[in-house]
Amino acid sequence: MALSATAAHHRAKIAALSRSRTADDPELIAAHRDLRAERLADHVQKVLADAPPLTDAQRERIAALLRVGPRPQADHADLGLADTSPNQVGGDV
């Protein structure tokens, strides 16, 4: 998938910062985060353009993933995103 103009901008910023900054530099870390967020947004737009419309429940479930941020899998049970069945071994639905 080709990069959007915004993602390309973030990638160029990373390249420029990488020449003079260490890997733990806050501005470089932020630039990496911004590129990841833009690539995720680009991917979501592409998937939504190719998919049938989502139901309200599906949109809410996906939005919940973005609102909570990274959490251990076990903590997702309150969102209905983890398999809580006692007879099943496994992870997220």
Rank of each mutant, 00 (worst) to 15 (best):
L48I: 09
L40D: 10
A31Y: 01
H43C: 08
A16R: 15
A30M: 05
H32F: 08
E27W: 07
A30L: 07
D42P: 00
H43W: 08
L35A: 00
D24T: 13
K13H: 11
A37M: 10
K13E: 10
K46S: 14
A41K: 15
S20Q: 08
D42C: 01
S18N: 06
S20C: 06
K13M: 12
R39S: 01
I14D: 00
K46F: 10
P26Y: 05
L17T: 01
S18W: 03
H43I: 02
A16V: 08
A31K: 01
S18I: 00
D25Q: 11
V47K: 12
I14Q: 04
T22S: 15
R21Y: 07
S20G: 08
L48N: 14
V47I: 13
Q45H: 11
L40P: 03
R19Y: 07
H43E: 07
S20T: 12
R33G: 07
A16D: 12
A15M: 09
L48C: 11
S20H: 12
L40C: 09
K46W: 10
V47M: 10
I29Y: 07
E27L: 13
K46R: 15
Q45I: 04
S20F: 07
S18Q: 05
L28P: 00
D24L: 10
D25E: 13
A37L: 14
I14P: 01
V44M: 09
A16P: 06
R39V: 07
S18T: 04
V47A: 06
R19V: 09
L35V: 00
H32V: 05
L17F: 03
Q45A: 14
R33P: 01
A41T: 12
